[in-house]
Every structure is written in structure tokens, then in C-alpha cells.
Amino acid sequence: MRTQAVWAGRIFKGVWPPIIFGVGFLALWQWFVEVRDIKPFVLPKPSAIFDQLRLQHDTILTAARITGENALVGLALGLVVGVTAALLASRVRALDDMLTPLAAGMAAIPIVALTPIFNTMFASTSSTPRRLVVAIYVFFPIFVNTLRGLRQIDPVHAELMRSYAASPWTTTKVVRLPGALPFFFTGLKIASSGAVIAAIVSEYFGGLQKGLGPAITSAAAASAYPRAWAIVTAAIGLGLVFYIAAVLAERLAMPWQRPQGELS
């Protein structure tokens, strides 16, 4: 029981500075806008934003659902292709030599800019272009990280498996795959938040005008800034949901790991 109290105490200790900062920041924001009479188009009041969240929550949720669906489908697709490619590349050297520099290059390229191409390839009224863009965006962190995990093996484990006269497939199954999990989840955490980002950004490139991105743009165009900020908050919330889901998946899949600090 004492360890539980110690543990709770540690969480509290870690949690109060950011909470105090967050609350203070919001309070300062509210005060600043009121005192300096800042116009909403520059910076709306937090209270106004919160009001809009409450009032518009139906529209916001619908838009979030659409963007979220695109992100989810794209994430699933990119995940499957990324893991498969990593598995293949870990066995076939030539594939590795081709895909890895390509992945490095693609990390520099604004993948979302591909959306107009997909819009012409598929009907611009379908959600597929955006989902494809998300899938491509997600593919690279998953591929790079999973491959890194599959390639590395603790030398002691490698010798141990050899002493057991284990076949390469058995070694992969028993040692490489479980050993690659932490790396896969590093990639998944990047990919899951990236999926939401890519989903929203691809919405700016034309096509269907549903989803969070266009909602923000149209609110801004109509000078309804508190509403626009409210939708932005919802978008940030969506990103957080995906990220937290990935973190939970990691904790579930790897119960043997001690919780890691944020920077590790």
C-alpha cells in the first residue's frame, strides 16, 4: 500500500507544474485579451472559444468524425503495408537498399502536396485521395522504425539461438519479433498522430468540403473566429485521442516494460 502512495505522490509531483502552467496560461490569455481589448480576429477569449465548443458541438463532432475516419482508414492501410514492407525488407537485402533511401527522401517531401494528384485519379468527391495521402504519410515512420527493430538483435540472444541450433525463422519468431515491438510502437506513436495531421492538411488541398480542415477555413472566412478556434481545439483533441490510443496499445502489448520517461 505504501508503494501505491509513493507512486501517486510521484504522479502528482510530475503533473502539477504543467497543470499550473496550463491554467495560468489560460487565465493570462483571458485577462490579456480583455484588458488590451484585442479583437477576435487576432486572438479570441478562451471563454468565447469554450462557449462555441458547447454551442456548436454537433457540427464539430460530425466534422471530427469525418476527419477521424479518414485518418483511421489511412492509418490502418499505412500500418499494414508498412509492417509488411519492413518484414520483407528485413529478409531481402535488395528491397531494403531500395526502400530505405526512398524513405529518407520522402521524409523531406511534403507528402500532403500529392493530394491534388489523387483528386484527379479518383473522383474528387471521394474520400479515397485523403485516405491514400494519410496512408503514405503513415507508411514511412512505421516502415523505418519496424525495420530498425527487426534488424537489431542482442548479440547474446543471437548466440543463444545458435547454440539451440534454431532455424532462422524460429529465431525471428522467438527473438526478433518480440524484440522489434518497442521499435514498432515508436513508429506507431508517430504515425497515429501524424495520421490526424495528414488527414486535416490534405483537406486544404481541395476536394470534399467536409471535415475539420474546411470547417476551420470557412469559419475563418466568415470571420467567426471563436468558432474557428473552437474547431481547432477539437482538431487538437482528435490528435490527442489517436496518440493516447497508440500509447495505450503500447502499454497493453508490452506489459513487461517499465513506463518510460517522456524523453526516452
Partner: peptide
């Protein structure tokens, strides 16, 4: 570090780019 780092780390996971249209209103008026 303790106050700000969680926000900085989390900010990498959220679509900050969503703020882009909002900055539009600044030009010509600020």
C-alpha cells in the same frame, strides 16, 4: 522543463497546422 515539456512533446502529436487559416486574419490589420 517540468512545466513546459509535456506541452512541447504533446504539441508534436497534434495538428497545429489547423491554426493556419486563423493567422489569415492578421494581415492588414495588425
Amino acid at each position: 522543463e517540468r512545466a513546459l515539456l509535456p506541452y512541447v512533446v504533446l504539441s508534436q502529436t497534434v495538428p497545429l497546422i489547423a491554426l493556419a487559416p486563423l493567422v489569415y486574419g492578421w494581415s492588414g490589420n495588425l
